[in-house]
């Protein structure tokens, strides 16, 4: 009985290890910020986990908001970044259309917005 338990434990550990090894790498995207634009390295991502890197190449500070266009969708915020600073966020994306923008006063109106499609 004890041997069986050991075998089962080993099998479970093996399965977990296999899952970890076989897990696909998360998809990645870079958002480059500048005055007054956002540029996405990918226009489209698949549903699931994504690593999104926000990289401020502008001279001013910028932040970033990412929000799915759906009722009640929660916004993900990246705090203010100075020139050449960057921050990577890990998000779970559902199918749909996402709006991205810089929320500092008048930055969005000046052009710092973009759309990401997830499907």
């Amino acid at each position: 009985m004890r041997a069986l338990a050991l075998l089962l434990a080993l099998a479970a550990a093996g399965a977990l290890l296999g899952a970890a090894q076989g897990a696909p790498a998360p998809q990645r995207m870079q958002v480059t910020e500048d005055e007054w634009s956002l540029a996405l390295s990918r226009q489209r991502l698949r549903p699931g986990i994504a690593l999104i890197e926000v990289f401020n190449l502008g001279q001013d500070a910028h932040d970033l908001v990412l929000q799915r266009r759906a009722p009640g969708a929660r916004a993900v915020r990246v705090p203010r970044l100075d020139y050449f600073q960057r921050r990577t966020i890990r998000v779970r994306l559902a199918a749909g259309t996402y709006a991205l923008w810089c929320s500092l006063p008048r930055h969005r109106e000046r052009g710092m917005s973009a759309t990401l499609r997830v499907r």
Partner: peptide, 10 residues
């Protein structure tokens, strides 16, 4: 251990 993402990551 993840593969590189030359277009998407600093």
């Amino acid at each position: 251990g993840r593969p590189l993402a030359p277009v998407d990551a600093y």
